[in-house]
Deep mutational scan, measured.
Amino acid sequence: KKVLATKVLGTVKWFNVRNGYGFINRNDTKEDVFVHQTAIKKNNPRKYLRSVGDGETVEFDVVEGEKGAEAANVTGPDGVPVEGSR
């Protein structure tokens, strides 16, 4: 997949743990970017399912997906594990 941007910060708009996807709002362009649970690189080690929490700040790369921009290599800021869904 073509990389459109790297090390982008954003805020998780919503994430559905059961369906394994959601959207992140980019801090720079204010665009919403699709995020799938497989894109989460560093999950909260205390959680079994990969997820990001609503309102959580995350860092990610933006790649060209089949339906437009999507997140890849999702971590917390500066590469720490994500907090995950509460």
Results as ranks from 00 to 15, higher is better:
I40S: 01
V33G: 02
G65M: 00
N43L: 13
R18F: 08
G53E: 15
K1H: 05
T75F: 02
V80Y: 11
L4C: 03
Y21H: 06
T75Q: 08
K2I: 04
E70F: 10
N25E: 12
K7V: 01
L4K: 06
T29I: 03
N25W: 04
E70M: 11
K42Y: 10
K1Q: 02
N73L: 01
V74F: 00
D78F: 10
R26H: 02
F34P: 06
V62D: 03
V8R: 00
F15M: 04
D28K: 03
H36V: 03
N16K: 02
G10L: 00
G53R: 15
A69D: 07
T29Q: 03
N19D: 12
V12P: 03
R86I: 10
V74W: 03
K7W: 02
I24W: 04
T29H: 01
G10E: 03
K42M: 14
V3A: 04
G20W: 08
E64H: 09
R86H: 15
G20L: 08
V82L: 15
T57M: 09
P45H: 13
N44H: 11
E66P: 14
F23Q: 05
N27T: 07
E64A: 11
F60A: 04
L49R: 15
P45V: 12
D54I: 14
G65E: 01
K13Q: 06
R26P: 02
R46F: 13
K30I: 01
P77H: 10
E31F: 00
E31D: 08
F23E: 06
V52L: 15
G53L: 15
R26I: 04
R26S: 02
G55I: 02
F60M: 07
S85E: 11
G68M: 03
L49H: 10
D54P: 15
V3K: 08
G65R: 01
G55Y: 05
G79I: 11
V12R: 00
E66H: 09
G76R: 15
V8E: 05
A69Y: 13
K42S: 15
L4F: 05
T11R: 10
A39G: 07
K47D: 15
V74K: 04
Q37I: 15
E59L: 15
G84Q: 12
K41C: 09
G79P: 12
G84C: 11
K42F: 13
K30N: 10
V63P: 02
T57K: 09
E64D: 08
G22W: 01
D78R: 13
L9Q: 15
G84F: 14
K13T: 07
D32E: 06
E64Q: 13
G65I: 01
N27Y: 07
N43M: 12
E59I: 14
D54N: 13
L49A: 13
P77A: 11
G68K: 02
R46C: 11
L4E: 05
E64I: 13
G68A: 03
T38S: 15
E56A: 12
D78T: 13
V80H: 12
D28M: 00
T75S: 09
G79H: 11
A71I: 04
Y21N: 05
G20H: 15
Y21P: 02
I24H: 01
G65D: 04
R86V: 13
T6H: 12
N44P: 09
K13R: 08
V3H: 03
D28T: 00
R86C: 11
V8H: 01
N73R: 05
V63F: 04
N27K: 08
K13A: 06
N19Q: 15
R18N: 11
N25I: 15
N73H: 05
V58P: 01
E56W: 08
V82C: 12
E64P: 00
K30E: 07
K13D: 02
E59Y: 09
D28S: 01
N43S: 14
E83L: 14
F60K: 02
V17T: 14
A39W: 00
I24L: 10
Y48T: 14
L4A: 01
I40F: 14
V17C: 12
G53Y: 14
D28A: 01
P81Q: 13
G55S: 06
E31L: 01
V35Q: 03
P81Y: 11
G65C: 07
E31I: 03
F60Q: 03
G68E: 04
V3Q: 06
D28Q: 01
V35T: 04
A39C: 04
K67H: 11
V62G: 01
P77L: 14
T57I: 15
W14C: 06
T11D: 04
T6L: 07
K1W: 06
G76I: 15
D32T: 02
G84W: 11
E64M: 14
A71D: 05
N27V: 06
G10N: 03
